[in-house]
Measured scan of single mutants.
Amino acid sequence: RNRTTFSTFQLEELEKVFQKTHYPDVYAREQLALRTDLTEARVQVWFQNRRAKWRK
């Protein structure tokens, strides 16, 4: 699988949710996936990576 390149819009949407919660539930991830045209799995992995970055 190739690396996912996120658009500016997608990143803004993802970051917006991350500001509210670092652990969105499955429903929130599904909604975000639909809004950003990503799969729920991509959204989940983005949050994992974003939390790792945030901890540093």
Rank of each mutant, 00 (worst) to 15 (best):
N49F: 14
A33N: 01
F18W: 10
T8D: 10
V26W: 14
A41F: 12
E15W: 01
F6M: 11
N49L: 12
F6Y: 14
A41Q: 10
R42E: 07
T4Y: 13
V43M: 05
L11I: 04
W46S: 00
A33L: 02
E30C: 15
V43L: 06
A28I: 14
L34W: 10
Q31M: 10
W46H: 00
K56G: 15
E15H: 03
R42F: 04
V45L: 13
A41T: 11
T8Y: 04
T8F: 10
L11G: 05
T21H: 14
D37H: 15
E13N: 04
P24F: 00
S7W: 05
E13D: 00
W54C: 08
D25N: 04
R42L: 14
Q44A: 13
R35D: 11
R1M: 11
T5K: 15
F18D: 04
T5Y: 06
W54E: 15
K20M: 08
A28L: 10
A28F: 09
W46M: 00
K56H: 15
T5N: 12
V26R: 12
F9W: 11
E40L: 10
R3Y: 14
V45M: 09
N2W: 03
K56M: 03
Q31C: 13
L34T: 10
P24L: 04
D37R: 15
F6Q: 08
E13H: 05
A52L: 14
Q10R: 02
F6S: 05
S7Y: 05
K20A: 10
R35G: 05
L14W: 02
R50H: 07
K56R: 10
L11E: 07
T36W: 03
Q19E: 15
Y23L: 01
L11P: 00
A52W: 07
R42N: 15
R3I: 15
A33Y: 02
R3A: 06
E15P: 01
K16H: 03
A52M: 14
Y27V: 14
K53A: 15
Q19D: 07
E12D: 15
T4Q: 14
R55D: 13
N2F: 12
K53C: 08
Q10M: 02
D25P: 08
D25L: 01
R42Q: 09
L34I: 11
K20F: 06
T21P: 01
A28E: 12
N49W: 10
S7Q: 07
Q31E: 13
R55W: 08
E30F: 07
L34H: 10
E13F: 00
T21L: 03
A41R: 08
T39A: 07
S7F: 06
R29F: 06
H22C: 06
S7R: 05
R1I: 14
W54H: 14
T21M: 03
S7K: 11
T36N: 03
L14I: 01
F6A: 04
Q31G: 04
K56Q: 09
